[in-house]
Amino acid sequence: MSPFPTTPDPGARPVLVAGGISDSHTWNLVYLHLLLEEHGQRVVNLGPCVPEDLLIAEALHRRPALIVVSSVNGHGYHDGMRTVARLREHPELDAVPVVIGGKLGIEGPPGEEEVAALRAAGYDAVFDDSPAGVAAFRRTLAALPQRALV
């Protein structure tokens, strides 16, 4: 049994949900978990304060369809950079899309330069905190293969 809240359905490749390295907020994670399940995804929710090593180990072990990093405590940009740099050191994970979203800085939404830096470091998409950000994320999900809904 997984120690993490997980959608029952062992077959499909899951989506990993992870809080930022230093971020203990969890309502964002609970929300994303439900949203992903409603889009037909199996979710493994790694919870808050996810260290790089744990995320890498889980990713290598589960071969997820997508990794979603969520951070709202204001350290999201720096923590997110660290996480993705370490993840992208693993060629086995090259094909796994990784996205990040939330309240990524302490002074409001990140600027264009920061978003570009996050993408350059290895994120496939960066979503902002607005309803538009969540809407864009929903569109991304609609493009992913879904598990069969019963």
């Binding site: 390295i21 230093s22 971020d23 203990s24 304060c49 204001g74 350290h75 720096h78 302490i106 002074e107």
Partner: peptide, 20 residues
């Protein structure tokens, strides 16, 4: 948050680099 979770290296590094 770094100090909260006991990651004092990251807190010190941020101080050195002037990261808010």
């Amino acid at each position: 948050s770094y100090t909260r979770v006991g990651d004092l290296d990251s807190a010190r590094l941020a101080v050195l680099e002037g990261v808010p």
